[in-house]
Design a binder for these strands. Sequence first.
DNA 1: GTGAAAGCGCTAACAC
DNA 2: GTGTTAGCGCTTTCAC
Lengths: 351, 351
Amino acid sequence: MADGSRPTLTTVAEHARVSRQTVSNVLNSPEVVRPDTRERVLRAIAELDYRPNVVARQLRTRRSSVLGLRMPPASDGISGQVLDRFLHALTDEAQRAGLRVMLFTAEDDDAEIREYQNLRATTGIDGFVLANTHAGDPRTRWLADHGVPFVTFGRPWDTRRDDGGTTADHHPWVDIDGRAGTRAATQHLLDAGHRRVAFLGWPEGSGVGDDRFAGWHAALAGAGLADDVVVHRTADSVAQGVAAATRVLARDDVTALVCVSDSIALGALAAVREHAAQRPGRRAVAVTGFDDTPVARAVDLTSVAQPVGDVAARAVELLRSQIEGRDDVALDRQVLIEPHLVVRATSRAVR
Amino acid sequence: MADGSRPTLTTVAEHARVSRQTVSNVLNSPEVVRPDTRERVLRAIAELDYRPNVVARQLRTRRSSVLGLRMPPASDGISGQVLDRFLHALTDEAQRAGLRVMLFTAEDDDAEIREYQNLRATTGIDGFVLANTHAGDPRTRWLADHGVPFVTFGRPWDTRRDDGGTTADHHPWVDIDGRAGTRAATQHLLDAGHRRVAFLGWPEGSGVGDDRFAGWHAALAGAGLADDVVVHRTADSVAQGVAAATRVLARDDVTALVCVSDSIALGALAAVREHAAQRPGRRAVAVTGFDDTPVARAVDLTSVAQPVGDVAARAVELLRSQIEGRDDVALDRQVLIEPHLVVRATSRAVR
DNA sequence: GTGAAAGCGCTAACAC
DNA sequence: GTGTTAGCGCTTTCAC
């Protein structure tokens, strides 16, 4: 029972007939204690069910072993799911490494920076994970300038900076190779015999979207089909997906659609269904999405899956090496992880 | 710049020419300090950009102002979204109340209980929020027995206990009135003139599912239509939704489907579309879902929205009253929140 | 290898 | 109203 008071270092020390310091050593530098003493101390620890008070330790060492993460704004899109899965994986990986994840919210980037200061000053958070970086992000800059350990899920997309500096560009990050993802999806369709593979993407200018576009284009180029391509760009929503696909399907030679997201793919699927109803007997148009969200699984949509577990593991690793101050030369500070294609009904030969 | 060392109470005290204690008082019991002194201290605080070290405070007061939440296992279903939205709202509300949310993971209930002990003993977490309670939950029991502040999102569905005890039954909880939700959805359909409103639900025995079923039934009973009802029960997936709806639509008098979840509604929608294609000219069958997930918005599905923001606010409130030890008689320790119906295309009169 | 002393930054208890 | 003293539980430093 945890009533009364918990045992402290002193309790354990008395119990094992050693000094508090020795108990501390057993916990933190076991190799420095003689085996039999260590044994005795460990027994006392077990008997008393002693657990070190991390708050006291934190006060002394100035290390909290806590990571901060801004709770990403509730995404209305379907793809928001990826971040949630990432958050889960991150919590898991952090815990495995003896770290905790603490959440906070902020209205905008500036508020977030203020919260960094706050959290550092008051609770001594050790580092941050940023999940939603964007072009010209002031947050990475601030963190780098202030020597705060952090890692981003997502590459910094702007390589140029007004003042010609490069600080922000060199921060540690982990990202998923979207280009490889759409490339694999496109290749998969080409392998199935499709020749006219259209791309339904986001408006130009988003790093992530452009990256995915590039993968599709590269695959077509590899097959010598890049001279005359079909692309339609639109905002990320199911309704827009319907509209975009309907437009593209007006071209009768298009037999497959590579979509930049599951949301758009979901819309495309509806359009394809409509299209098929009007032309019975014709081979169904293949569709692929991106993110492998629950919806994709639900409607049996082929999609590119982001291995968020791997991302989280590498992120924690990168963070730890910064926090512990070891300049891990062996550790790549920029990690690009390959996604994989999950083939489902919407891209398989139908009938 | 935060380099060098941050100011402490002592720094501020010297700066304001008072004792450390007075500074502490200004922060924690301002009314006890003379106005002019307080003014001077506040000025010093502002000038030095002093922020109290919460770790030190925590060591002293044994209060962490941190709430623990087990990261719910990545739900493959579409409805998992509700928890994510809740988590966001909780973080927000907690922050507003000066609390932080810390995450952890656990394999199962027992592991979670072990983690409670751990977190309490080592980091002194003040309380917990449980998001996924289930019948016969050992966690609420453990927490109650050990006097740990907590609140659940979800009612305890089992009112009986082996030993006849009632501890677990009296814990503070916040929940959404699912019954009221389906009742509103059903009434909405009845008002639109539908007479045969079928229910697509989960297998009997889940508290949440039975609750939603009850609301539908109550609405029909209120209209004198409960004598001969159409119900189909199935697992929560889109595919199952398709199958269930197809079965139910074999009865030609069914003109509306109230679904226990958006997943099932999504499937039902597909079945309805198929059905309509075979019977042109017939009035489309109305469909409603539950949870108002992004997918519902995406496909324009009428759905019952869970006001998770309200839930989070009340949860934080209940937790605070426990942590601060005030036995708030005025505060209902069991809060049922009314959801609201979001009417969209799938339940509006078509054409 | 082990122990004693000091102190991290704060607040509770009591003196003035 | 304000200041002084003590101590939360731990680790770092330095004797031994």
